[in-house]
């Protein structure tokens, strides 16, 4: 089904990837920690290394919970698929796309 309208109705997405240049939006969810009401959203280059992404984006955010220990996250998944990320892998290489969801557990 689509919109019933009085005129042609076709507009581009306001969040499409090209609006972010070489970057993309990435969601990260700490599963099972109710201190975080939702996943977080980051803007990160597709070519960013996993090591940088985790150290520069995930860790400072997760440290909102003072009990967070950056050595502990595990069980990483990208859009539901298990991954074992190495620090030198790029986000793109890990299969992280625009508005993908990365989850972990502790």
């Amino acid at each position: 089904m689509s919109v019933r309208a009085i005129a042609p109705y076709d507009f581009p997405s306001s969040s499409r990837q090209e609006l972010y240049g070489d970057d993309q939006l990435v969601h990260v969810l700490w599963e099972g920690n109710m201190m975080f009401c939702s996943a977080a959203t980051f803007r990160a280059p597709r070519e960013m290394s996993w090591g940088d992404f985790k150290a520069q984006m995930v860790d400072p955010w997760a440290a909102s919970d003072p009990d967070y220990d950056p050595r502990c996250p595990g069980g990483w998944r990208v859009d539901g698929v298990e991954v074992s990320p190495r620090p030198d892998q790029t986000l793109g290489g890990l299969g992280v796309g625009h508005k993908s969801l990365i989850t972990f557990r502790i």
């Binding site: 969601h27 969810l29 201190m35 975080f36 009401c37 939702s38 996943a39 977080a40 959203t41 980051f42 400072p60 955010w61 440290a63 909102s64 003072p66 969801l101």
Partner: peptide
């Protein structure tokens, strides 16, 4: 009590329809 205040130090993931954070 430790002198802090809990905040979510980042931006949330939003629902494309209702625009509420995906909580």
């Amino acid at each position: 009590e430790g002198g802090g205040r809990f905040f979510f130090q980042g931006l949330p993931q939003l629902c494309q329809t209702c625009q509420i954070p995906m909580i």
